[in-house]
């Protein structure tokens, strides 16, 4: 009995740590994009190193949680859903890391007039992912409270869509000074940033169904 509770406590701590790591990763992504926009190269480089470590840590934790849940036959009715949820949450930090690398490798030339819009896009997109973390945490202790927290994810995801579309519209309708190849290049960066909130939305949908199932 003591052994089972030891395993239980260990996996609860791992799940908490996993969410902490993803949460930090999202913040680092936000910081990184803003540092890129502000041309703060040193801080941006630090952000890349940090997100690299956080992403690797999230992967290790995810694998360990998945392994323990299956090998110790824990949560037989929910482990598939829980593992799927953690996988989708892990996708967020994976995408955040990939996006920062793309900024680093491709060095998009963001015109001054779009700086504020990109900064706002990353803020809103990250807020969507940030809102997902407390909802995912609360699922484990009070499934009925999940719904109240998830509506923010969907709200910010829609907002991020609007801002991204606005950026694209500005690029193609109001920016004659930018050549087409650069427009297309910047369009993809708006899309990549927006994708963080899309990832959060996918996880939120899974969480909604899980909360309903748990409440039965």
């Amino acid at each position: 009995m003591a052994l089972l509770f030891k395993i239980t406590n260990s996996i609860i701590n791992q799940i908490d740590e996993f969410f902490d790591v993803v949460d930090q990763g999202i913040l680092v992504f936000k910081q990184g994009v803003n540092n890129y926009l502000n041309n703060d190269k040193q801080s941006f480089a630090d952000n890349i190193i940090t997100i690299d470590k956080l992403e690797a840590k999230a992967d290790v934790l995810y694998k360990s949680i998945e392994n323990t849940l299956y090998t110790k036959s824990l949560l037989p009715q929910f482990r598939g859903d829980v593992v799927n949820l953690l996988d989708k949450v892990d996708d967020i930090i994976d995408l955040a890391k990939e996006n920062l690398y793309q900024f680093d490798i491709e060095q998009p030339k963001i015109p001054e007039k779009l700086n504020l819009h990109f900064s706002r896009l990353v803020d809103i997109s990250v807020q969507s992912a940030e809102s997902l973390i407390p909802a995912a945490r609360v699922f484990f202790v009070d499934a009925s409270a999940v719904k109240d927290k998830l509506h923010r994810v969907f709200f910010y995801e829609k907002e991020a869509d609007k801002i991204a579309n606005n950026i694209k519209r500005m690029l193609f309708h109001e920016s004659d000074e930018i050549i087409l190849s650069e427009k297309q290049h910047l369009r993809y960066f708006a899309l990549h940033t927006e994708n963080i909130s899309d990832c959060a939305k996918i996880a939120a949908k899974i969480l909604t169904v899980m909360a309903i199932k748990r409440d039965l």
């Binding site: 509770f5 239980t8 609860i12 824990l74 949560l75 929910f78 484990f140």
Partner: peptide, 15 residues
């Protein structure tokens, strides 16, 4: 609803 036990801890209790 009152005690709010963690799902994984609850699983052990149920076991």
């Amino acid at each position: 609803k009152k005690v709010k036990i963690h799902l994984i801890k609850l699983d052990s209790f149920i076991r």
